[in-house]
Design a protein around this nucleic acid. Sequence first.
DNA 1: CTGAAAGCGCTTACAG
DNA 2: CTGAAAGCGCTTACAG
Lengths: 351, 351
Amino acid sequence: MKSTTRPRASAKTAARAAPKATLGTVAALAGVSPSTVSRILNGTAVVSDDKRAAVDAAIARLGFVPDPVARGLAGGRTLSVGVVTQSIDSPFYGVALRGIEDELARAGYSPLFVSGHWNATEEARCIEVLRSRRVDGIIVLTGRLSDAALRAQAKALPIVVTGRTLKAPGLYALQFDNFEGGRLATHHLLALGHRRIAFIAGDAQHPDANERQRGYRAALEAAGLAFDPDLVVPGQYHEQSGLMAVERLLDRRVPFSAIFAANDQMAFGAALALHRRGLRVPEDVSLVGFDDLASAVYASPPLSTVQQPGYDIGRLAAQSMLQLLAGTQPDAVLPAPRLIVRESSSAPGAA
Amino acid sequence: MKSTTRPRASAKTAARAAPKATLGTVAALAGVSPSTVSRILNGTAVVSDDKRAAVDAAIARLGFVPDPVARGLAGGRTLSVGVVTQSIDSPFYGVALRGIEDELARAGYSPLFVSGHWNATEEARCIEVLRSRRVDGIIVLTGRLSDAALRAQAKALPIVVTGRTLKAPGLYALQFDNFEGGRLATHHLLALGHRRIAFIAGDAQHPDANERQRGYRAALEAAGLAFDPDLVVPGQYHEQSGLMAVERLLDRRVPFSAIFAANDQMAFGAALALHRRGLRVPEDVSLVGFDDLASAVYASPPLSTVQQPGYDIGRLAAQSMLQLLAGTQPDAVLPAPRLIVRESSSAPGAA
DNA sequence: CTGAAAGCGCTTACAG
DNA sequence: CTGAAAGCGCTTACAG
């Protein structure tokens, strides 16, 4: 990068047109010291009513808004919280980000989004960036960082993490009941009358993927059905892997009348594979996903799935962060998994 | 919000364990003044080789990384650029954000994402937030702000905007050829032999939606076909409106053998409506979308569409911003629209 | 309850 | 080529 001094200079010139208000300006106009204005702004001390009124008036008159940058330098708080997501364009985490945005905004905080791309090293770098930018706390959406790494960070600043059960000072973990979700999906298919239910697993590196599979097995066992390893095929949580999983199943000629995919994206891939082989959903095979992505409603046919409340996860994570920041112990708990029955699942042989 | 002093205090205590390096520490270790270190960091002046070497060594030894917050306060640059998107979880803009992230990262800049929700007032507030956070420049993805408002902002700091043609000092606009895209999609259907092509329009408030429609008409005319207003039905760029558009078309009994939807999301809704009415794609009706969302490949059947290169749009917007920041005139041009033929379109009556 | 003063970690004229 | 000094806009002990 070359020096960027030039353009800034002209920018400043232009900005000078509207002489910006500072703590000092406000103080002068209100006839008090900057310290007092600062205290009023931060609710940091009791101030006499008349001074407060004078300051409020001056603030309004000048349209003063405190500079977060200066605040960060001087006070250590930037009113921003870092959010490490895996991919800024993830269909699932997208709504979670929105939940975070909304909740944080209510408290005057801004999120700072960075992407870890499912890579512990990158995530660690993300956290460095965030800390160098002086965020007040960090929300980690799942991620690949070790519990120990998270614990260590929590010693320096508040951390909220999703997708784990973990207890440590300065850290709050929010966990979704993936086991129950997996059980629910499988049980739904079982209740419909299916006996041969294939399972497209998620990446074994994700603890949630394993939990969903445990739920699948538990439901089978509860129904008195033996677990058949031939019916489970690995996937990586993306569409392509769902598609390939079904092709593998079909090529191996394992009979099945329903499929439970460990996430919606794989279910979409599975649907396409079935479509290509001339198999209809749900007439020939029922399909259930997991997550309830926005696009699940408009799949053809609309996908039955287990709803994972992304927006709430985001909102609650932000709320917990705000509590941590305020010195309160968070107590948020994620909603229980909910089965959403749409048109991709029906009784076997209903055609 | 209550005072957040308490937790910060303990955070500081913990952080003190690793005494953080500052300009001063580095200077002391290298035996030069802080000014010199600063100059080396910023490439702001020529420095003798030996001092430079000493400073580089000290930086490495201490693992020093300059504080962006302090830098922002003192120098006016924060190495961050604001990005106003419409919705942090938009399926289309998501990849654009990723393109921005990637390109900015190469130059050591960080994006600051905020969402305007297709609302000029909110967008204006977003820009306030961004400016109060001292971003060095702002990228606006389409949005509802007036050209005049953008022009005014560009007087204070560099602006890059997508989805418009607009010239102003300190501002660079990147425009996608929506007209050509609309023409391409329609021409594809025409070439396949379709004569009755329905058009699901986008929100008339979006200039790009109107351009796509112009492209549709132009292709029709070029083929010597009269424009039939009965074949065009309004939509709002979301799935539900695509679904309703098709129902309206069907209810009105206007004959058609193909549909061109002004974006993929509406195409998905349209596909569902057709599916529900027992109409097959493409055997009974061909379907073409616009955007080429990630999910278009895995729709059943995979959607033919006009590719709008979201990732490149983001990357080029960021690149242009970097150029503006460096005092160079940007020259990026968006790639031409490209038709992606998949399985949702075929010759009429191919069944 | 309220000021004056020092300081957060840098940058940048201003002088050599 | 390089320092000393002032300053960015706030916050926060420290003293009343």
